[in-house]
Design a protein around this nucleic acid. Structure first.
Length: 293
DNA sequence: GGGCTACAATTGTGTCGACG
DNA sequence: CGTCGACACAATTGTAGCCC
């Protein structure tokens, strides 16, 4: 038996290397820091969302009534990210709930958990309040908690829930209590996030594809031309390619209009080539781009 | 295949009044 | 402020179908 004890001791020593200790300290520091301090500076009506949430189908499109339950599903993303997901498929509305919660963490100077009434949350998301909505919102919150994400970037690995705990005291004050997952916050580091305009998103309304496209292209400073079927895979649309292309155009028009509504000087434009590639020009076509055509 | 429209079914949404 | 229920109706979606 002595042999086993020795081995255990050796193992423990191995655990408590200097490196491990520093990591533990960093972790304790992270968990001890107030949530609001971990989040990037945000401004009114802007939501900070990590890029890897925007560049793939983690928050994709979900057909009505066909939300799939998956386990360790690899999510098709941009090459530098490896993402897999377990849980119920998340859609754009789930993303909105999530980023609203993150925004509130910052705005209300939250330490660890947020207490909010569903009524208040509806107001924050510019939704009218009714019974159906409270049901959906709690569903979404629970879904965010249930879903487990594994994200592997060049420099970081994250595995965990998007929200640590959700708690509703239905007998008490009925408030929704959200406990944040602080280990998520490194995803915001190194400017690896994009500020998404809540105004524009609101203008895009319920058009899931338009919202996804808007998020996707906002996260790229210099958009690369993508093939349409590639985009379709990215956003997890199960339309046939014919319908998708049509919807894509309608969605892009909507984004264009929304951009103009918010900023009259917007020159945001797009183009679909004959070979079914989508070009997006955030600041309008440059002379160089025009000459290339 | 591609562009587009029409249509019906299904779902989501706003509103309003009531209550404490 | 916060919650609940009921209501009509608005929006979205898939499908079918048209023409090129």
């Amino acid at each position: 038996m002595a042999k086993i004890d020795d081995k255990i001791q050796e193992f423990k020593k191995h655990l408590v290397t200097k490196e491990q200790r520093i990591k533990a300290e960093e972790e304790a520091k992270l968990l001890g820091t107030a949530m609001q301090q971990l989040l990037p500076e945000i401004f009114e009506d802007k939501r900070a969302i990590p890029n890897c949430f925007l560049r793939g189908a983690l928050f994709g499109m979900v057909r009505k009534g066909r939300r799939a339950l998956v386990k360790d599903e690899p999510i098709f993303t941009m090459s530098q990210y490896e993402v897999s997901f377990s849980g119920e498929h998340l859609d754009q509305n789930d993303l909105e709930v999530w980023d609203t919660l993150m925004y509130l963490a910052k705005d209300r100077e939250v330490d660890n958990e947020l207490r909010i009434s569903l009524y208040d949350l509806c107001q924050q998301m510019r939704l009218s309040y009714n019974q159906e909505r409270t049901k959906k919102l709690t569903e979404r919150a629970l879904r965010l908690k249930f879903g487990t994400v594994l994200i592997r970037t060049n420099t970081k690995i994250f595995a965990g829930s998007l929200i640590n705990n959700v708690y509703i005291d239905t007998e008490g004050d009925g408030k929704l209590v959200i406990e944040y997952n602080k280990k998520l916050t490194p995803l915001f580091a190194d400017n690896e996030y994009t500020l998404i305009s809540a105004d524009i998103r609101h203008l895009l309304g319920d058009n899931q594809l338009a919202r996804w496209l808007y998020n996707f292209y906002e996260s790229h400073a210099k958009p690369i031309p993508f093939a349409i079927d590639f985009i379709q895979k990215l956003c997890r649309s199960d339309n046939n390619s014919k319908d998708f292309k049509y919807k894509l155009k309608a969605s892009l028009e909507l984004i264009k209009k929304a951009k103009l509504a918010v900023n009259i000087k917007s020159k945001w434009s797009y183009e679909i080539t004959t070979k079914n590639f989508l070009f997006v020009y955030p600041k309008g076509k440059t002379k160089k781009q025009l000459s290339l055509l």
